[in-house]
């Protein structure tokens, strides 16, 4: 029964995609006006009325990088808990003990990582 509903959602997403793309192409070709000779200023990036200076992809904020590293690890771990939660009634207290130990063991490095991440001068 795993495949139940999969063809329907596939057909639905395909229909949405085709109709959205078709809508935008039709509007682009039939409705929206065109400027045959746009002035060079027109296509400049928007910088609040100033003349755009420098590259668009500038240096970016890195002080939250530790959160990205933690996310890569702990987002996967949240998936494992779904398999456990689904069969919780069948597993009972004895079957759940390893998972509870797993959660507690993982919370200790999470706390230490948060301690480091909140001290941004380390990064």
């Amino acid at each position: 029964m795993v495949a139940q509903g999969i063809p329907e959602i596939g057909a639905y997403i395909g229909f949405l995609f085709v109709s959205t793309v078709a809508l935008i192409i039709v509007l682009r070709l039939l409705v929206t006006p065109r400027d045959p000779r746009p002035s060079p200023e027109k296509k400049k990036p928007f910088e609040s009325g100033q003349i755009a200076a420098g590259p668009g992809r500038t240096r970016f904020i890195i002080q939250y990088y530790p959160y990205l590293l933690m996310f890569v690890v702990y987002d996967v771990i949240a998936m494992f808990l779904f398999a456990w939660g689904l069969d919780l009634r069948a597993l009972g207290a004895s079957g759940s003990l390893p998972v509870l130990v797993f959660i507690v063991v993982l919370l200790i490095p999470l706390g230490y990582a948060l301690h480091l991440a909140n001290h941004r001068e380390n990064w």
Binding site: L27, R28, V31, T32, P33, R34, D35, P38, K42, K43, K44, P45, F46, G56
Partner: peptide, 10 residues
Amino acid sequence: SFKELFVPEN
């Protein structure tokens, strides 16, 4: 829908 559509340079 009736506004002009263009892509910024670069």
